Simulated scan of single mutants.
Amino acid sequence: MSWLLAIVAQPAAAASSPDLMTVERQLAELVSTRSGDFGIAAVDLSSGRNVSINGDRLFPMASTVKLAVAGAYLNQVDAGRRSLSDRISGRSASQQIELMLTRSDNAATDALIRNLGGPATVQTWLNYNGLSGIRIDRTISQLLRSPRDLLDRRDSSSPLSMLKLLRLIDHGPVLKPESRRYLLDMMERCITGRNRMKALLPAGTLVQHKTGTLNGLTGDVGFITMPDGRRLAVAFFARGGSDRPSTIAQAARAIYDGFSGSWGGRMFTTYGGTGGSAN
């Protein structure tokens, strides 16, 4: 795919924190040697220190969009308009959210979207909270039935826009503490994508995340907690090529090391993966 090779040839680096330029250079080197198109962004939620590679480039969100659906529903719960005990398509809303976030269940996602009033309602919630860089145009079933075009701008986000959503979830005004804890617990229990951002992080590292997969697309977004308690919001999107999960895993480890100050010129190693679901 010539268009993809042209994009990958010179990955764009956004302005990042000066003390993290080394890790950003390493990330740029990593993606420049891979056959796909990658977007990476990370920010320390306490200090604002950040890095990004192709941070403004749009990528299909796939199932990472489910974080926005959960946020919109929980916002309604906080406002007293809905409840986690409401029955939606034969299950409680809480059961549907759990299936959506921990197992990436598409039917549960579409049941919640319909209950909210459709994709446009979720988009309105995003826009109201200043997240116009994220587009939600279709239900999951509609997306899966559509012809595949990895450059389609519908249902897309840039890595930096996804970071804005993650920061809003983490400490913005849109969720009450109870709903925030509930959402983060669901993200911590995510069982998909064990071969992505979690794969090469030290054992026991707390990761709260949501994966996304379409044919030719792999994503993983969420939070990484550092040993000293600092939390990073991270977004990884990859399309094309054949080594997307392994590249995300290595990029996540580079970010972990860079933000912890333990980067020591580590060379990217051959990755064997840990298996797991690919949703």
Results as ranks from 00 to 15, higher is better:
residue 71 G to Q: 09
residue 116 L to G: 02
residue 5 L to R: 15
residue 234 V to N: 06
residue 237 F to E: 05
residue 99 L to E: 05
residue 243 D to C: 01
residue 94 S to C: 06
residue 77 V to R: 02
residue 149 D to P: 04
residue 45 L to A: 12
residue 77 V to H: 05
residue 45 L to D: 06
residue 68 A to R: 08
residue 97 I to F: 02
residue 17 S to K: 06
residue 190 C to D: 15
residue 142 Q to I: 08
residue 105 D to R: 01
residue 200 L to W: 06
residue 124 T to P: 00
residue 117 G to T: 13
residue 34 R to V: 01
residue 153 R to D: 12
residue 70 A to Q: 02
residue 264 G to W: 06
residue 199 A to D: 15
residue 279 N to E: 07
residue 78 D to S: 15
residue 122 V to S: 10
residue 19 D to R: 15
residue 74 L to V: 13
residue 257 D to Y: 11
residue 132 S to R: 14
residue 109 T to Q: 00
residue 40 I to Y: 07
residue 187 M to R: 06
residue 234 V to A: 09
residue 85 S to A: 08
residue 9 A to P: 05
residue 267 M to N: 13
residue 175 L to T: 03
residue 103 R to V: 08
residue 101 L to V: 03
residue 169 I to D: 00
residue 162 M to E: 12
residue 268 F to C: 10
residue 232 L to T: 00
residue 25 R to N: 14
residue 32 S to W: 09
residue 54 N to A: 13
residue 238 A to F: 10
residue 54 N to M: 08
residue 205 T to H: 13
residue 34 R to G: 01
residue 113 I to A: 01
residue 257 D to G: 05
residue 64 T to M: 13
residue 154 R to T: 08
residue 3 W to V: 15
residue 138 R to D: 08
residue 40 I to S: 02
residue 264 G to I: 07
residue 109 T to F: 00
residue 248 I to M: 13
residue 223 F to P: 00
residue 145 R to D: 14
residue 259 F to S: 09
residue 114 R to D: 09
residue 17 S to A: 11
residue 62 A to P: 04
residue 267 M to L: 10
residue 31 V to H: 07
residue 142 Q to C: 09
residue 82 R to E: 03
residue 7 I to A: 05
residue 276 G to M: 06
residue 191 I to Q: 15
residue 68 A to Q: 10
residue 29 E to Y: 07
residue 144 L to N: 09
residue 204 G to Y: 04
residue 2 S to M: 07
residue 153 R to S: 13
